[in-house]
Design a protein around this nucleic acid. Structure first.
Lengths: 135, 135
DNA sequence: TTGATATAAGACTAATTTAATCTTATTTAT
DNA sequence: ATAAATAAGATTAAATTAGTCTTATATCAA
């Protein structure tokens, strides 16, 4: 596997849409969902996440919606993933709720450290790629 | 997410075990499973995959088991992942059974190309890391 | 002030994927 | 012959992910 979730895919798409339509105009979840033919509710959740993590500003009510809060070159794909995904770790024993040496296979499994290194380098790939680069 | 499957974790562990115990000695699935306290059947499947993809040689019958067929520095983590995992793609539209331009979001989603690039670079990280490096 | 259209957020259900187990067959050393 | 191993596929169970539904709140405009 090692697959991005649909939520992350939708997040990339929604962020891209916001970036391309940021001329003072407020984009709604409905608008984006219809544009890509995906679930309105899922897009809405993605956008709510964006608002929470300060990627986008939200406006409620009629004429409400979302606008990007940063320049596309200032938003990394990593920011977007983090905004939308709670777990983003290669293995369970690499996650923060499982700090330090804790591995379900006791000290039998010694693959943790090299994987931490690879994890960092993968994160960096997404960190180095900005939203601007996918427009 | 973007998580390795347990199968892949087990594969790394099993490969590591084989590499550390390759002094003419045949390692069995049972032995490895007990050593790491994981399911015997799952380890068996991993080892069968290793045999099919020529990472290990298998010997049947009593006194049977598996031995690494290559030097640890000649086996990459990517080889191991490929051996054990059928899908190893960042997104569904990146998989081979979905060639070329086919994306469920028609031409609406334009994130495919940059993701192909990131996919390649992730693959490279695993390709550049050899089994020897996790011993 | 009411109705229409948004976001906000959480509960719930459905679908898919992954993990684990079970079963049967075959091989081979003793 | 028997015990211990691989081989391979079927089946079940568990976990995760995707998608939907519901209720509440905000805001614009007639």
């Amino acid at each position: 596997m090692l697959k991005l979730s649909k939520k992350t895919e939708y997040a990339f798409m929604a962020a891209r849409y916001l970036a391309l339509n940021n001329s003072g105009h407020c984009s709604t979840a409905k608008e984006i969902a219809e544009n890509y033919d995906i679930s309105r509710e899922l897009v809405a959740k993605v956008l709510q996440n964006f608002a929470r993590s300060d990627i986008a500003a939200s406006f409620q009510g009629v004429k409400g919606g979302y606008v990007l809060k940063k320049n596309p070159e200032e938003v990394s794909l990593f920011d977007i993933i983090l905004s939308v995904e709670d777990k983003h770790h290669l293995t369970n024993c690499l996650s923060e709720d499982n700090p330090d040496e804790k591995c379900s296979h006791e000290d039998g499994c010694k693959i943790r450290d090299p994987l931490i290194e690879i994890q960092k380098r993968i994160d960096n790939l997404f960190l180095e790629t900005s939203l601007k680069q996918i427009l």
